[in-house]
Simulated scan of single mutants.
Amino acid sequence: MAEIVIRNLRKEFGSFTAVQQSSFTIADGEFFMLLGPSGCGKTTTLRMIAGLELPTSGEILIDGEDVSQKPASQRDIAMVFQMFALYPHMNVRKNIAYPLVSQGVAKDEVKRRVEEVARILRIEHLLDKGVGGLSGGDRQRVALGRAIVRRPKAFMMDEPLGALDAEFRELMAEELRALHDRMGATTVYVTHDQLEAMQMGDKIVVMNHGVVEQFGTPQDIYDHPATLFVADFIGSPAMNFLRFEGAFRAGDTSIMLGGVPIETPELQAEAAPRPLVLGVRPEHVTLTDDAPYRGRVEATEYLGTTQIVTLSTAHGSVKARIPSGHVARPGETVGLSFTARSLSVFDAATGRAFRTAANAGVHHG
């Protein structure tokens, strides 16, 4: 397998810049997610790594070799797409074997490797069946098998589960991750689904308008979003944003929100009076009678063991994820307290998070 290093990668299509100065490293054997909304540049980045698009500038190194201007055929990369692109006139065995047959691999070796891949994917019983009658999940396994059988340096997956229904997607996501763990393959995976990225990825790059907003582990990105975009895009419900005018000094461990002191992680920067945003995840909001910061209950949403309570405050709407046994009646005013170590403070103008003792190791784009 292979380490993949991206340095200052840029892609222009005429006057449109699809990817802007992206830099990150995909470790050998890592399951790496490129995450973002439609049009953010994630698929273009994947295609440049694979050699299906050549970068306008920047470097792509695979196993230390600069492949930036090399075609896909010289990069030893296998692609898996959303559409299965199987050969309908061939059975499963011949579909999986096709890359090896086209390379002139000996028949005995082809048979051995196809059967090995079929065992890994648990589709031995399908080898002699036609692909036309297979379920979507089984077709995707065959497409994966055709990629795996080549034993490439890395796998590129462009929303491979996008054509499956919700139940199959969840099952195949689990199977893909388990397959990755068994093989130790370097995998680059494009998705717009933040839950899929959080579930499967070792590392995530979050992109927006061609820019890498943040990269890191799923937990780092969830707990310490580097920008307002990341904070809003990751999490369901998304992070709450309380907008206010404020200032603080380096070393402060609280901010003033509507005249109420709110404890925060130690702030490692200084901000003159300016528009700020306090970010808090719904699960880090507690409803309590004696908290001085107040909100009015607007609605509740029952989710089984928990409920989502929506409240209006002087600084914006707040959602709290609390135990379902807690009674919150629409119309009542309650106190809100926040878990200090889990708060983020953003500059409203730039959208960037201020550095704190908690997020000091966060990788911005």
Results as ranks from 00 to 15, higher is better:
1 M>P: 12
8 N>H: 15
12 E>P: 03
15 S>C: 01
18 A>Q: 05
29 G>L: 08
34 L>S: 02
35 L>S: 04
36 G>W: 04
38 S>Y: 04
39 G>A: 13
40 C>Y: 03
45 T>K: 10
47 R>W: 08
47 R>G: 11
49 I>P: 04
50 A>Y: 01
50 A>H: 10
52 L>D: 09
53 E>T: 11
54 L>I: 12
58 G>P: 12
59 E>L: 07
60 I>M: 09
65 E>M: 13
67 V>T: 15
68 S>P: 09
70 K>S: 14
70 K>P: 05
72 A>G: 12
74 Q>C: 09
77 I>C: 12
83 M>K: 15
87 Y>N: 14
96 I>K: 01
97 A>V: 05
98 Y>E: 13
100 L>H: 06
102 S>G: 06
103 Q>M: 15
108 D>W: 06
113 R>Y: 10
118 A>E: 05
119 R>E: 14
120 I>Y: 11
121 L>D: 00
124 E>Q: 11
124 E>W: 02
126 L>F: 08
127 L>W: 06
130 G>Q: 14
134 L>M: 09
134 L>Q: 00
134 L>D: 05
136 G>R: 11
137 G>M: 12
139 R>W: 07
139 R>H: 03
141 R>F: 02
143 A>H: 07
147 A>W: 00
150 R>I: 13
152 P>T: 07
156 M>K: 04
158 D>L: 08
159 E>A: 13
162 G>N: 12
165 D>H: 13
166 A>R: 12
168 F>M: 13
168 F>V: 11
168 F>K: 11
170 E>Q: 15
175 E>H: 08
176 L>M: 15
177 R>Q: 03
178 A>E: 13
179 L>I: 14
180 H>Q: 13
181 D>C: 04
182 R>D: 11
183 M>A: 10
187 T>N: 04
189 Y>D: 01
192 H>D: 11
192 H>S: 13
196 E>L: 09
196 E>V: 09
196 E>F: 03
199 Q>H: 08
200 M>Q: 05
202 D>W: 02
204 I>L: 03
213 E>G: 01
214 Q>Y: 10
214 Q>C: 02
216 G>N: 09
220 D>A: 15
221 I>L: 15
222 Y>F: 15
224 H>D: 05
225 P>Q: 04
234 I>P: 01
238 A>I: 04
239 M>G: 05
244 F>D: 08
245 E>W: 08
245 E>L: 11
246 G>Q: 08
247 A>Q: 13
250 A>F: 01
251 G>D: 00
251 G>H: 00
254 S>P: 02
254 S>F: 06
266 E>G: 09
267 L>S: 00
267 L>V: 05
276 L>R: 05
276 L>P: 01
282 P>H: 09
283 E>V: 00
283 E>G: 00
284 H>E: 02
291 A>L: 08
294 R>Y: 05
294 R>C: 03
298 E>N: 12
298 E>C: 10
300 T>Y: 06
303 L>H: 12
307 Q>P: 03
315 H>Y: 09
316 G>K: 00
316 G>W: 09
317 S>W: 02
317 S>F: 02
324 S>R: 07
324 S>W: 02
326 H>W: 01
327 V>N: 07
329 R>Y: 02
329 R>D: 05
330 P>V: 02
332 E>R: 07
336 L>C: 07
339 T>C: 04
342 S>I: 00
343 L>Q: 03
343 L>E: 00
349 A>S: 14
353 A>K: 04
354 F>K: 01
355 R>P: 02
359 N>L: 05
359 N>W: 05
361 G>V: 00
362 V>A: 12
